[in-house]
Design a protein around this nucleic acid. Structure first.
Lengths: 211, 211
DNA sequence: GTCTATACGAGGATAGAC
DNA sequence: GTCTATCCTCGTATAGAC
């Protein structure tokens, strides 16, 4: 069965170009790094989930670290761009906060592996690889909204930096704890459309009430 | 220097008993498992941080998994007991919530490695070892408080299970993201008394406002 | 009980044929 | 560019002396 998939994948891949092969590797790598983190991810496992051999992965990405940096870079560019394209200055702090959180959550819902990779990155690598890419901007955006809201009195006198971190934690923690939460929702798929929709609603309601 | 510490530790250990040696190993193991998780923790690193040899660790705990289960068990018993000893039934939902969260946070502040171990456990092992111990009770306690508050109208019509998870996420996420947050607080020690005190205040204020 | 030395497997990385 | 075979390092676990 695994062999069959491998062959099928390989056959179709041969008709495609170099970039398609790299994309195929990156997609499988995201899964593997999300499950195991940089230190424990297995190149062989990634190869097994594509039609590509282990040697090919080294050919394209040099080493495990190179592959890891490639998925971080692609993830950051593709996934986080929507946040930076928001124009929040014209909105009230409350509206801006809702808009920002809604956008962040919709990114996470479409890329549920991203929080796991970010979490592993924080724990195993202390955000080493992260900083080379510049994820910091995201906190800065949220902090700015909170500062504006405190200044004009629409939010309570909260600390913007701690609160920004808490808000991101709320959005992200559902994905990290999904396996542990499973026993609270027997028979439900935690990454199914219904549960994700509930998480988004509940998180936004909690965040807007909290400020 | 490392050798000196090792010798000093060893010398003093020899005067103590078997249980003291096991405790010394467990303390070092907590550090190592918090940094690296079960899969990536190194028995040799644990040995290096005690006066105990690698072989001794195997002698006392059989294998890496045995050592891991021992720290989970000890951590759960010693650290989580205060939560179960709370008598919250006589308090109003709001008071009970504050009491519960304050107790949880004071446990985390005294054991800042615990959230990291819990997080690794969720990511790497999908909470496999967890469940053998019975950590589930903690969520159940919090969910009960939230249900009571919704029923008597002191809380908004929130979903108790999602909200319980979000609340725990707020308490825990600070510890997970501490290295990433460092750049927001240059010169501060994220696990210092001052910063931890701020986290506790900010988290409680946010949680109480949010329900 | 405690140490040293080592067997053994896993996995990252490369050499070299095609 | 792609594959197979292999090298080498590292880390778990144990054997066996004391």
């Amino acid at each position: 069965m695994a062999t069959k998939n491998k062959r099928a994948s390989k056959a179709s891949r041969n008709t495609r170009d170099r970039e398609a092969t790299k994309t195929e590797i990156l997609d499988a790598a995201v899964e593997e790094f999300a499950r195991n983190g940089l230190a424990n991810a297995r190149i062989e496992a990634i190869a097994a989930n594509t039609g590509v051999t282990k040697a090919m992965i080294y050919y394209y990405f040099n080493n495990k670290e190179g592959l890891y940096e490639a998925i971080l870079k692609r993830g950051f560019n593709a996934y986080m761009q929507p946040l930076q394209e928001l124009s929040l200055e014209t909105l009230s702090p409350t509206e801006a906060l809702e808009e920002f959180v809604r956008c962040l959550l919709s990114i996470l819902v479409r890329n549920p592996n991203w929080p796991l990779i970010m979490c592993y990155e924080a724990l195993q690598n202390q955000g080493r690889y992260y900083k080379r890419i510049g994820i910091n901007n995201i906190d800065a955006q949220l902090i700015a909204i909170l500062e504006r809201g405190v200044a004009d009195g629409s939010f309570r006198p909260l600390d913007p930096r701690f609160t920004a971190n808490n808000i991101i934690g709320i959005c992200v923690f559902y994905f990290i704890s999904r396996d542990g939460m499973q026993y609270l929702f027997p028979g439900k798929r935690m990454l199914g459309k219904q549960m994700l929709q509930l998480h988004v609603e509940q998180a936004i309601a909690l965040i807007l009430a909290s400020v």
